Simulated assay, not measured.
Amino acid sequence: MSPRGVAIPDLRERLFAAAERVVARGGAAALTSRAVTDEAQCAKGVLHAHFAGLDEFVAALVLDRFSRSARGAEALADRVGRGTVADNLVDFAAALLDSLDPAVVGLAMTRPTASLHTRRALEAGEPGYAAMQESVAGYLEAEQGAGRVPGGADPHILALALVGTVHHLLMTRSPDPDFDARATCGRLVTALLGPPGRGPA
């Protein structure tokens, strides 16, 4: 347990990771301020010292994971001409699909105040699905310019279909220990791009 009054390095991430472990073990109902601070081995009042309440904390967790996924989409620009287009897209999509536990997403959707915090932050410019879609489209345009995506393909529609479908899965799927995010994203990318060598229909 961290001593009272001693600064905790990377406190936000420590609390976020603790919350994800709590939810993974016990579901959404297990997520309380006390459960998070106990899991993070922090003093009981630490969460409320940095967040207005559990709803704000849940919103901050979701926004942080959205931001991480948006950075992953931006990083596709560094992979133009490297690997295969399909593998690069699957890497991004699988990371996005694994970025949040379905129970955490459920909390953010069903707790009105958490949902409001999240929506307002996105409207104010916090990176979310729109930013991811833009980055994926930019990546596909660059690969199209390099001749690795057919000229007749529409990068913006492909990006919308990929990010939108993964968004839907992230928001609606039930917790399932046997769910294979990478395999699912592989099938999705193949449906969008076509089998290797054929390109989008």
Rank of each mutant, 00 (worst) to 15 (best):
H48Q: 09
A49P: 06
A52Y: 11
A52K: 14
G53E: 12
G53W: 13
G53P: 11
L54K: 14
D55E: 15
E56M: 09
E56Q: 14
F57Q: 05
F57P: 01
A59K: 00
A60L: 07
A60T: 07
L61N: 09
V62E: 09
L63Y: 05
L63V: 05
D64Y: 14
F66E: 11
S67D: 14
R68W: 15
R68N: 08
R68V: 13
R71Q: 12
R71M: 11
R71Y: 10
G72F: 02
E74C: 05
L76E: 00
L76T: 00
L76H: 00
D78V: 02
R79N: 00
R79E: 00
R79D: 00
G83M: 07
T84A: 02
T84V: 01
T84K: 04
V85I: 03
A86V: 06
N88K: 00
N88Y: 04
V90C: 06
F92T: 09
A93I: 08
A94C: 09
A94H: 05
A94T: 06
A95W: 08
L96P: 04
D98G: 07
D98R: 14
D101T: 07
D101Y: 12
P102I: 13
P102Y: 15
P102S: 13
V104I: 15
V104Q: 09
V105Y: 05
G106L: 07
A108G: 15
M109N: 12
M109Y: 10
T110R: 14
R111W: 14
T113H: 13
T113F: 13
H117V: 09
H117W: 14
H117K: 11
T118K: 12
T118A: 12
T118F: 11
L122M: 09
L122I: 09
L122E: 08
L122D: 06
A124D: 13
E126V: 09
P127C: 05
G128H: 05
Y129K: 08
A130K: 14
A130R: 15
A131Q: 12
A131K: 10
A131V: 13
V136L: 02
Y139A: 00
L140I: 03
E141Y: 04
E141D: 06
A142L: 12
Q144R: 13
G145R: 01
A146H: 10
A146N: 07
G147K: 01
R148T: 03
V149Q: 01
G152N: 08
G152F: 12
G152Q: 10
D154C: 03
P155C: 03
P155S: 00
P155W: 08
H156P: 06
H156W: 15
I157A: 15
A159Y: 00
L160T: 15
A161T: 13
V163H: 03
G164D: 11
G164A: 12
T165L: 13
